[in-house]
């Protein structure tokens, strides 16, 4: 009998997205521009993170009308965001038929202690993580894909770089531990023992890991790929820039040809102005989206 919503099917879609760029879009027109530029998926939103940051207040799941229109506009997979812990928003998104749910710190958390039990859903989830323990807690809850948190809506890649380097460094450290040291490591990073053991043995995360949060240029995307990410989320970076179609195409090319400086130099030309950037130190700690999630 055909089995739907299995772990293989959930993680498998993430495998198919690898080497690609997932772009935030707020209208069907933007979704078409993203698809035309070669995006491997789009994230359907009411507002991009830079606007959510500027607006303040409580940010929630997008209006289903917006999501449905975007799903009708393109043939590539469509993702949508639910608030951390808001399992009913996730139920609604699954009912709409979105292809992936991002349980996202970009929206205002709905639960200050618990994330969604993602095993209970047929639709797969992606979650943000700043370090290995956080990534493995999310995978333990059923996330089939991980991304760095970065600091969304800033156009500043520094936090995504920090999170990616930290995860990679922790994996390297785990690989050198003796088996009797794994339990203590699991306790320190507050992560499920079996997943910590698996990472220690295999030397890699058990699911696909994308970069997200602050990516604004082709060079940013290629840097994250060279640091070992499997693919790229671009939030505000495309549609907050001067020439969105050109920048979208360039970031797609840079993600494929991330190890080819000649291609990177070529695609970085004549893109117009990138989105305005924010220095992380100017954002009060309690306003940093990456601090959301537990």
């Amino acid at each position: 009998m055909a089995q739907k919503g299995t772990w293989t099917v959930k993680t498998g879609l993430a495998e198919m997205l690898k080497g690609g760029v997932i772009m935030d879009v707020t209208t069907p027109e933007q979704a078409k521009i993203a698809e035309e530029a070669g995006a491997c998926a789009v994230m359907a939103l009411e507002r991009v993170p830079a606007d959510i940051r500027a607006a303040g207040g409580v940010a929630r799941m997008a209006d289903p009308t917006v999501i449905t229109k975007i799903m009708e506009a393109v043939t590539i997979p469509v993702m949508a965001k639910a608030r951390i812990g808001h399992f009913v928003e996730a139920q609604i998104l699954q009912e709409l038929g979105v292809d992936y749910i991002d349980e996202s710190e970009v929206l205002t958390p709905a639960d200050e202690q618990h994330h969604i039990n993602k095993h209970a859903f047929k639709v797969p989830f992606v979650c943000g993580a700043r370090n290995l323990g956080e990534a493995l807690r999310r995978i333990g809850e059923g996330a089939a894909m991980i991304r760095t948190k970065g600091e969304p809506g800033t156009g500043n890649v520094v936090e995504a770089v920090r999170h990616m380097r930290l995860v990679a460094g922790e994996i390297r450290r785990l690989s050198n531990l003796l088996e009797e040291e794994i339990m203590s490591a699991a306790k320190e990073m507050r992560a499920p023992y079996d997943l910590v053991l698996k990472v220690a043995r295999e030397g890699k995360l058990p699911v696909v890991n994308f970069a997200a949060g602050g990516i604004a240029t082709p060079a940013d995307a290629a840097m994250m790929m060279q640091l070992g990410c499997d693919g790229i989320f671009v939030g505000s970076g495309i549609f907050k820039s001067e020439n969105a179609p050109a920048r979208a195409r360039a970031i797609v090319a840079a993600t494929t040809h991330f190890n080819d400086p000649a291609v990177l130099a070529e695609v970085s030309k004549n893109l117009g102005t990138a989105m305005p950037g924010l220095e992380i130190a100017t954002i009060l700690p309690e306003q940093r989206m990456q601090e959301r999630g537990w």
């Binding site: 009998m1 055909a2 089995q3 739907k4 919503g5 299995t6 293989t8 099917v9 498998g12 879609l13 997979p77 699954q94 038929g97 979105v98 292809d99 992936y100 047929k122 639709v123 797969p124």
Partner: peptide, 9 residues
């Protein structure tokens, strides 16, 4: 169909 209809067999 969409991802929720993906399957193994």
């Amino acid at each position: 169909g969409r991802q929720v209809d993906s399957f193994e067999e």
